[in-house]
Design a protein around this nucleic acid. Structure first.
Lengths: 212, 212
DNA sequence: GCAAATTAATGATTTATTCAAG
DNA sequence: CTTGAATAAATCATTAATTTGC
């Protein structure tokens, strides 16, 4: 059934302000979505009691190493990333950076040095580890799925977590490659009396996420 | 399962694809097109017959939907927006529109149809893509700004060690297959001090498979 | 100047994530 | 907790634009 013949007055000035709530605007505009908190995120406790107080002090310290006074970190040797550092690194990672070249690492190190002692190798290792552990996450859930498929005892894991992971894998593995395609279609088909409809891809009720 | 076909009273219908417009589109007063002209002109005729088939139609076929006739459009290429269309869409975007609802999409489609063949899905995709890619740009420029804020200190780390490890990492990515593209994408070490050309901090296609 | 080869841009699809009603 | 609805992110694919060798 064609919905056509929109012989409306149609002034473009009205469009941006949707006549009916147009709530989708509110959810996606410039307001950054602060990643909903995830229950399972370990969140990497960076803060230990002996962390360097201010970024400036940290920077100064990083420039003037050699004094034993500067060895304020517990182990004394390992890089302990500051939250700001993690933030920038993850931003870069999400921007697509995987294996930065030396020039890039130098720049990143220089920037991160504002917030705490850091060397280029730390940056390099961080990318290496982050990349690898992202892959590990994927593989772990796949392995768990395989386990669950063959073994129903499953005593050592919580079943809730298992089900969550299985659900994630469902789309990839459960549905075979040939089948998971194309349930959607845009319906370029002529009307021709055919009963098939296209998948509704747009909210019929744009007011859905209208909530205070 | 997750997605299913809904039989709702709303479906996207494309504008009447005036079959005779191909010549008029390409030849009419097209001197004003600074970029992207002629949506219907096939560039090369190497194609075997099935290339013309649109993926949506193929999927549709694979899914047993009776489909007495599902002839795809003769000019079954993807939508290639006219400058006027882009101008209007960008105006709407800047006006705040991000995810237009079906009614809005219908109106926009009707309006843009004055300048060339277009369907509702094109409008929908345009907003989705534009929104996503504006976000990407924002992220990247933000990270670049953060990095550019500091360039004074150089970190101390062993470049040679890192290069060895990087080489290990890159082995499986088929760098050798691409000749000089990688130099552009990843930057080269020796241009560290030369020129003020902005170094690309992000690979264009980080995890992409090698090009054919 | 020109086509072939390549690159960058972006249209179109698919997959993963989020939210909250039931 | 499960599931439907919607969207964002990632990916695939095609085309305009650019480069390159003659």
């Amino acid at each position: 059934m064609k919905v056509q013949q929109l012989t409306l007055g149609f002034s473009w000035d009205q469009l941006p302000s949707s006549p009916s709530t147009s709530s989708s605007l509110s959810s996606s505009s410039s307001t950054n979505h602060p990643k909903r908190l995830r229950p399972l995120a370990p969140k990497l406790t960076v803060a230990s009691p002996e962390i360097i107080a201010s970024p400036a002090a940290a920077k100064f310290a990083s420039r003037n190493l050699g004094s034993s006074l500067m060895q304020m970190q517990p182990g004394g040797t390992r890089w302990n990333p500051m939250p700001e550092q993690i933030k920038l690194l993850e931003a870069l990672y999400q921007g697509g950076m995987r294996t930065p070249n030396p020039v890039q690492i130098e720049r990143i190190t220089a920037e991160l040095g504002k917030y705490g002692r850091i060397e280029g190798k730390n940056v390099f290792y961080w990318f290496q580890n982050h990349k690898a552990r992202e892959r590990q996450k994927q593989k772990r859930s796949a392995a768990l799925l395989a386990l669950a498929a063959n073994n129903d005892s499953l005593s050592s894991f919580k079943k809730e977590e298992m089900m969550v992971m299985m659900k994630k894998e469902e789309n990839h593995e459960g549905i075979s490659s040939c089948k998971r395609k194309c349930i959607r279609s845009w319906g370029s088909v002529e009307e021709s009396g055919a009963g098939e409809r296209t998948l509704e891809l747009f909210p019929l009720h744009p007011e859905r996420k209208q909530m205070g």
